[in-house]
Design a protein around this nucleic acid. Structure first.
Lengths: 331, 331
DNA sequence: TTGTACGCGTTATCAA
DNA sequence: TTGATAACGCGTACAA
């Protein structure tokens, strides 16, 4: 079933390809009968315009690229849902790549997507990305880019993020109000925007309540499980925190593992609070209180802005950073 | 930074486009010096062939389509990892769509991908898909398709699946050996291959140990949470199972919810066993024993077969169904 | 060894 | 109202 082309239709109906093309697009200059004839035949033969030919002609692909650190992560897969949602409704498809937290992979992915002529890019930076020249090179030349979740510090950029400071602040405040005094903070690499914002929220809450900021309770973890385990173990051994404030699914679970292993007894009413979109948080023991990010909305918003840029629907609007509220689930 | 084309290079070096084209491909008929000249200039200008033009010419896109019910699901996101892995290494990119368990969405996705001229399709069927005419139409006309995980019954097809029967059998056998006698089975819609295979494994184990098959202990659940809750609640109320054998992440978690609500006390040593790739199974209370599917390998294998078909590397090999072993994690 | 011309499917421009 | 032609970027058959 080789797909049928405009040429085939033209030949079958003994008219020219340009007439067919115009008829299919409903051009006003075409005779109503001819139009009908063409439409019906196209319908009957199940004609579909060849998107690749269109792309070549229009120099656009009606596809947008998405780069995330990992797909196998609730937050990102929900965000992708949101992106796909919007893109789909506006006639775009979505090409997804993973950086696997590697700067090199991220760079290659960007080049790849650009070479593939995606019409724009949505990206959440890898945990080892220190600067965004590899992206800004393209963006400065009018390649539309929207950063989301993990965003760069640069100001000339479109960004969509969760209000990490606020979420971290409220969570920490709650723990303090519950009487916790030794609140460990186990978090992602310091280069990430989310790390810094959450850390700032944590510190601000401590300060508000006159509690000391103890750097020894703050652990930055990269992405090897061993590293996290060691950090947490030593934390428990040396300081026996009465609360753990974690920055990701994985780090929260690492804490539970350590707690379960019980190298040292933790306070009976130890509290766990984390940034996570895990759907099992309330089933853990003790339950994990969570700062839930609006992953779906984040994806949707980022996609909407990107498509607006692509379709030139943002006249007048400049760069902006959109901040979405997080949800506290106390358990 | 408009991308540079062969034409630009030709003009800059005062030679013809065909010479450039041939030089770039290292054609033997081109003068070594010309070649070098072209190569160096291309390198310097960061020339990249336009993949869209190539696609139009070669009538292929070097992209493969993937359709899964949901991305936000450990099993599928791991499988996608495997697919991406292989595809990437063999020079293809991956376009991912979700059917959201809807037959209509699935059908539209297939058409969409086909119109986009992906070189082949990997698909795990939606929970409401009753037949695969919408896919076989294309496949019969030489559009490469490999089914994975949730596959159709038809025999003329490439399939890659987990050994669901064996996994279910071993899990059920284990529960019986542990003394469980009222083993509820909460599972996916009966149209799915995985449902049938797992059910058969469950029944076979019961039979082997001379236990009755009680249809009232078997609940098929579609995809609304309420439905699952009701099924589980009524199961608990009426039969107080001493073991739950679930077919998915979501259903397992639904059971834990119900258990936690404690509408009726379950036996103290109630056991939970489920098909799931959740990474928190061992942290639940009581821990969830799991039949883990080799999601990554499933994806890799399916992708390899698909690419072999696309690249005509399967001469002689016919249709086959590859079955990969599951892993039992007893907790 | 290199160049010219064509075709992939489509649309836009210009001519009829 | 319709048709012929060129163009998007590339590879290749054929000509030189």
């Amino acid at each position: 079933m080789e797909p049928i082309t405009i040429k085939d239709i033209a030949k079958a109906l003994n008219i020219s390809t340009s007439t067919v093309s115009r008829a299919l697009r409903g051009s006003y200059e075409i005779n109503t009968e001819t139009k009908k004839l063409v439409m019906e035949y196209a319908e009957k033969m199940n004609y579909r315009p060849n998107p690749i030919a269109l792309s070549l002609k229009e120099n656009r692909s009606r596809a947008i690229g998405v780069i995330v650190p990992e797909i196998a992560n609730n937050f990102f897969s929900q965000a992708i849902n949101g992106i796909e949602n919007i893109a789909y409704n506006r006639g775009y498809h979505v090409v997804i790549f993973q950086s696997h937290e590697s700067y090199e992979r991220e760079m290659v992915n960007v080049q790849h997507l650009f070479a593939r002529k995606v019409d724009g890019l949505l990206i959440s930076l890898s945990g080892s990305t220190r600067d965004v020249n590899h992206i800004e090179n393209y963006r400065e030349n009018n390649f539309p880019v929207v950063y989301f979740d993990r965003v760069p510090e640069i100001t000339d950029a479109h960004k969509v993020v969760a209000d990490n400071f606020d979420g971290a602040f409220r969570a920490t405040e709650y723990m303090i109000q519950q009487g916790k005094r030794t609140i460990a903070h186990i978090t992602s690499p310091p280069v990430l925007s989310i790390t810094q914002e959450r850390l700032a929220g944590y510190k601000a809450a401590l300060e508000k309540y006159g509690l000391p900021i103890r750097e020894e309770l703050i652990k930055f973890c990269y992405f090897s499980p061993e590293e996290a385990f060691n950090a947490i173990d030593s934390l428990i051994k040396n300081y026996q925190p009465d609360a753990f404030f974690t920055a990701s699914d994985r780090l929260a679970l690492n804490c539970y593992e350590a707690h379960k292993k019980k190298i040292i007894e933790l306070p009976k009413d130890v509290m766990f609070f984390g940034f996570t979109n895990l759907n099992v948080a309330h089933l853990l023991e003790p339950p994990l209180s969570t700062i839930v990010q609006p992953a779906l909305e984040l994806g949707q918003t980022a996609a909407e802005i990107l498509l607006d840029i692509i379709e030139n629907k943002r006249r007048g609007k400049g760069y902006e950073t959109i901040k979405l509220k997080t949800d506290l689930h106390i358990r």
